[in-house]
Simulated assay, not measured.
Amino acid sequence: MDKKYNKYLNFTAVTVIIGLMLAIQFQTVREPIVRDTRDTWQMREDYLKEKETYSKLLQEIRSNEEKLAKYETERKQSKEQVLRETLEELKMQAGLTEVTGPGIVLSIEPVYEEILLGEDAPTISPDLLKRLINELNMYDALYISIAGQRLINTSVIRDINNETKIDGYSLKNLPIEIKVIAENMQMAEKLYNRMQASQSAEELFRFDNLRVNVSKPEAEITIPAYQDTIRVRNMEPVESDKGGS
């Protein structure tokens, strides 16, 4: 009886061991190791991008949580005050209020020494101006004005009758002054350094006999509010029976 029991026990142990080995082998075959072929710099770049995205998301979450907490705290005390502050914040984001903060001033002017005799003074093209604005936005510019005209999300820069205009305002007279406000003085310094080292901006403008001068960061730069009426299209109020009332 003991021999039979020992034989059965040994058989069971061998079966369990074989089963574990097969399971490990199956798992190894089923999930092969995928090697990361990216080099160190690419991985570092991807990591920094993901880290920056994560940081921005955290900031947005904290900002929204703070607003929710503020609404909850002041809901019974001062609903009107919170709504007024929200309205002012939205107006600022839309460009409807004057803003003051640290930033830089760019001046676009002709390179007179390179203009041939008899040629007309150069003008700035819409594409060239758009490229410059895109570069400023890429370097975290918060607010921008061009020749005293506030630039907002719906602003249009285009050629009308061979004349570059922003929201209908002419930009034919040089020099053109572009004011840029950054989040803080440190970001203004960073913006200044990047624009000083911007070869693309220098080369593009030089081709059209223009140059871009960048002033040193200033603690206080004032950008005017958007003057025209913002037209909202393809939107209508929600009826009470269709949306939450």
Rank of each mutant, 00 (worst) to 15 (best):
I115W: 04
V105E: 08
G103S: 05
L57S: 10
I133N: 03
R131I: 08
V82L: 04
E114Y: 08
T97C: 08
E113L: 05
L132F: 04
E74A: 04
E65I: 05
Y71K: 12
Y71T: 10
L136V: 01
S107M: 12
I115N: 05
K56W: 11
V82Q: 01
K70C: 09
Y71R: 12
P126L: 02
V99N: 00
V99Y: 04
I104L: 07
R75M: 11
E52T: 12
R62Q: 12
I108V: 15
I61Q: 12
L87Q: 13
D120E: 15
A69Q: 13
S125W: 01
E50A: 10
K70L: 14
N134C: 03
K67N: 08
L57P: 02
R131L: 11
K130N: 15
E80Q: 13
E98H: 09
T53R: 13
K70P: 00
A121R: 11
S107H: 06
P110T: 02
L87P: 01
L128I: 07
Y112D: 10
K49F: 09
E98K: 14
M92T: 15
K79G: 07
T73M: 12
L117D: 10
S107K: 15
L136S: 00
Q77D: 12
I133R: 02
E66M: 13
Q93K: 15
D127P: 01
L83G: 05
L129T: 06
Q93D: 15
K56R: 14
V99A: 05
